[in-house]
Amino acid sequence: MASQGTKRSYEQMETDGERQNATEIRASVGKMIDGIGRFYIQMCTELKLSDYEGRLIQNSLTIERMVLSAFDERRNKYLEEHPSAGKDPKKTGGPIYKRVDRKWMRELVLYDKEEIRRIWRQANNGDDATAGLTHMMIWHSNLNDTTYQRTRALVRTGMDPRMCSLMQGSTLPRRSGAAGAAVKGVGTMVMELIRMIKRGINDRNFWRGENGRKTRSAYERMCNILKGKFQTAAQRAMMDQVRESRNPGNAEIEDLIFLARSALILRGSVAHKSCLPACVYGPAVASGYDFEKEGYSLVGIDPFKLLQNSQVYSLIRPNENPAHKSQLVWMACNSAAFEDLRVLSFIRGTKVSPRGKLSTRGVQIASNENMDAMESSTLELRSRYWAIRTRSGGNTNQQRASAGQISVQPAFSVQRNLPFDKPTIMAAFTGNTEGRTSDMRAEIIRMMEGAKPEEMSFQGRGVFELSDERAANPIVPSFDMSNEGSYFFGDNAEEYDN
């Protein structure tokens, strides 16, 4: 993207840094990872977990959730003011799984939030270390993106479920800051804005008074975040219109849905970061690795190297396929839920299948599930090659597409044709070009129609051997075009429920 120079890199967003050079960025990201790792080690000690239990991804998720809940100030305040039966607002906890007599047992633990905050700050040299908290939120978000298709949420806001490739980060909490905003897809931002506008339509006082002023500035800020994701002048001009509207209503909703559809071809720039579970960072720190000293990046080879040398386990339900569970977590670790499966298959070195073909449910185990038949197995999170994460949407291309997802959002900077089903997408653009945004709409449609099938995206960008740390010898991959490109292809993934 041309304006790259004016933006802070995501590592800076990730670490609240002012302008830093590459070495400083690597050190501050490393410091953040160190903090998460030290916190995780301490929690495993508190909970008396064995090494194996500490490497269980379900335990990692519970521990991450506990610290996120302990620092969720708004919710904590709300819980104190609106006490609900049987919930102690000062405590947080969740299921911890232990191996007892050759069987997995679930144990519900409860801790004072104050105590968890103390352990977290102690692991982070006394700081609140917001960057580390956001990092864990993005890992949870990436896992949700890989596990669930947001059909219901899309339909509720009037969008087409086939636009799911635009929904990265749709389950990120509001408090995820600049680093969170960077990884949100165009569809996620559109959905947040539509929800806001709908509230304004239904509630006369939404934009009024002292609160209304705050609401208005939040609305304009979200519009600017979305505008910054678009790469064409016409899309940005249309966002200006939406932002400046005196009284946002149905016309703005129409414009936003139009823009979301246009992003299936004229893709937005959305950041991709490899955020790993805390149970990967903990053992690495415990083994003596100093992330701050060595430096770390979320968008280069580092996460690949770390996963190459990590042992992570997962509980497996009786009829689940461990290899499929591994694929789910591998995609989440690489922030690749909406990437082209052919690119992923090449990088991973084994075939990556669409969601609907995987015999696996989510990673988390519900409290009512029976533990008797639970097994555990090693997650295979290694890769054959590594590639640089991208934040450009890439230019655009036609490809055989599917009944489910009709476009992709690249996660890796790797040369390819970008699949999208042009006739299906263009069919949504018939007729409606009147109104105050008509010239911009016409211009956007013209650009979409001009998108050429034979153009290559990320020209000359390749993948790298894991021994090639400096990215000196790019390998331009070859793809098996007979395979499906979309992950949520004609899909039956479970729906995400809060």
Rank of each mutant, 00 (worst) to 15 (best):
L381H: 14
Y487V: 03
R216E: 10
L276S: 12
C275Y: 08
D34K: 04
G462E: 08
R162K: 04
M426Q: 01
L154N: 03
R208H: 10
N205P: 04
F338W: 00
R208G: 13
D421P: 08
L266H: 06
F464W: 09
E115V: 14
E220T: 09
M189G: 02
G450D: 00
C44S: 14
M66I: 05
R342A: 00
Y111F: 14
K87A: 06
Q235L: 01
G5N: 12
V280D: 12
S482E: 10
F258W: 10
I33G: 15
E292L: 07
S486V: 10
D16W: 10
R441H: 13
S314G: 13
Y148V: 08
K422H: 02
Q231A: 01
E443Y: 10
V67L: 06
F206K: 03
L79S: 01
R246G: 01
M447E: 04
R461Q: 14
G37I: 03
N321H: 03
K273P: 09
Q308M: 00
Q235A: 04
T378N: 02
T130V: 03
Q122F: 07
N368R: 00
K91N: 13
I425K: 14
C275A: 12
Q149E: 08
H272S: 11
V183D: 07
V414W: 04
V408T: 00
R195H: 15
S310G: 08
K351S: 09
E369W: 11
A123F: 07
R19S: 01
S353K: 09
Q405V: 07
A471L: 05
K198M: 10
T188E: 15
G35D: 10
S84D: 02
S310T: 14
H324C: 13
T360F: 10
M447A: 15
Q405P: 01
D145V: 13
F458I: 13
M43I: 05
S3E: 08
I225T: 15
D16K: 10
Q168M: 04
I301S: 06
R441S: 12
A178V: 14
Y97I: 06
C275H: 10
T23E: 13
L328A: 04
R174P: 09
R261Y: 12
A471F: 10
C275I: 05
D491S: 09
E11M: 07
E434L: 00
V299C: 10
G288K: 10
C279I: 08
E380M: 10
K87D: 12
H135K: 05
E320R: 10
S376E: 08
I365A: 08
L307C: 15
R117M: 02
M239L: 01
R216Y: 10
R236G: 09
A336H: 10
N59A: 12
A129D: 09
C164Q: 14
V463L: 00
T396Y: 02
G180D: 05
L315D: 01
Y296H: 14
K87I: 04
S407P: 10
K325E: 15
L108V: 05
F258N: 10
T15V: 13
F458L: 04
I225P: 09
D101E: 13
R267D: 12
F429W: 09
A336Q: 02
I444F: 09
G177H: 04
Y487E: 11
S84T: 00
Q12M: 01
K305M: 06
N334L: 15
R382S: 06
F488V: 04
V280H: 12
Y219Q: 10
G282C: 08
Y496K: 11
Q149H: 04
I116N: 06
M189W: 04
G268D: 12
P354N: 13
L154K: 09
E484C: 11
K229R: 13
G282A: 14
V414T: 00
R102I: 04
S217T: 02
R348L: 06
T92H: 08
R342W: 13
I444R: 02
S383Q: 03
N483H: 15
E210T: 12
N473P: 05
R26L: 05
I96H: 08
